[in-house]
Design a protein around this nucleic acid. Structure first.
Lengths: 178, 178
DNA sequence: TTTTGTTTGACCTTTTTTGACCATTGTCAA
DNA sequence: TTGACAATGGTCAAAAAAGGTCAAACAAAA
């Protein structure tokens, strides 16, 4: 996208720049708040936006939206983002339910070491089944997927992939729109 | 075939991606849903349409129909399309079921190329959900697991791991006790 | 002053839409 | 019988419509 020739934005954006006391509220912060307010009024704890439209609303470059998503809506801070390109593309932000799911959060913390061996994964999955966070069938499926025999990788690599898979499982279970 | 007054919009089939407050439904998606709704009411799991008539109903160029057929009704996602040109020409879409083990085994064969990209995996999972071999939740979980963003690997490596995961899923579904 | 966080824009990838041109089949008049 | 022509559907590449990446420039905080 070519932005050359765009109207100098300093003038227009002046009234968008609110001040809170002396500290300037950044654009990123404003977009963050806006998205969070949308999420709050959403019944499903998720919203769908168009990157271009949103950028237009805030009179900024589209990539600014990505910055906000990366820094304020990643899974470490309790959000999940799904996107699609092309005509009819969209960005979906899903708020993860962090309030009631302390166990999952704790597991997530522990799991984020980027490495989980097969036995640990199996135990963790079993625990999720025991706590009714996964059905038995889901547990079996996931156990098979994280099995060394099926991954067929060098140990270190398998452990790494497994940790990513487990992390994804935990994050997905935190979705409140399932 | 008479299409007059037949566009029943917003017929949303079970989808891995549950839709909430859609921003923009593409033409392709609408035509896809329409054809799927026709298929669902069809006793024979097959329908016959006229490309030109359908294009007129949706007020688009005829080749748009081909795009929909190629991307949404190909054999990878469980459909078979037969056509005939010339006067009295037609397009027949047949929905292939996944009714017995042989179908899954066939799927396994096709899949065992040691490489599956994200989109193909997503479509395959969607099909398993549509055919009630996976629950929607299982589908979402598995889709997340096979998502590039979550695997965080180089494309080629991701495709390889994904094929192993898909293979494991299919094999597991073939288990008698699942 | 150094470090960390924000903003911007050039360039890239994916998906959908459109249209010009091609191929096949059926009909009917010569 | 055959050859024009109408009625279908097929192909392919360009344009349009999204979103993604990354590094440089700026700004704020430590």
């Amino acid at each position: 996208m070519d932005f050359s020739g765009k109207i100098s934005k300093n003038i227009v954006s002046a009234d968008l720049v609110k001040k809170r006391g002396i500290i300037m509220v950044t654009l990123a912060k404003q977009i963050e708040e806006y998205l969070k307010s949308l999420l709050e009024t959403s019944e499903s704890n998720s919203i769908e936006i168009s990157r271009n439209d949103l950028a237009q609303v805030f009179m900024c470059v589209p990539s600014q939206i990505n910055y906000v998503l990366e820094t304020r809506f990643n899974s470490n801070v309790g959000y999940l983002v799904e996107t699609r390109r092309g005509g009819g593309g969209y960005i979906r932000i899903v708020k993860l339910g962090l309030e009631n799911e302390d166990d999952l959060i704790q597991m997530l913390d522990k799991t984020s070491n980027n490495s989980i061996n097969q036995l640990s994964a199996e135990k963790l999955l079993q625990r999720l089944v025991d706590e009714d966070l996964l059905t038995l069938r889901e547990g079996l499926l996931l156990k098979a997927i994280t099995d060394n025999n099926n991954l067929q990788l060098a140990a270190a690599e398998a452990d790494l992939i497994r940790s990513k898979i487990i992390k994804t499982i935990l994050v997905t279970l935190l979705r409140e729109d399932m």
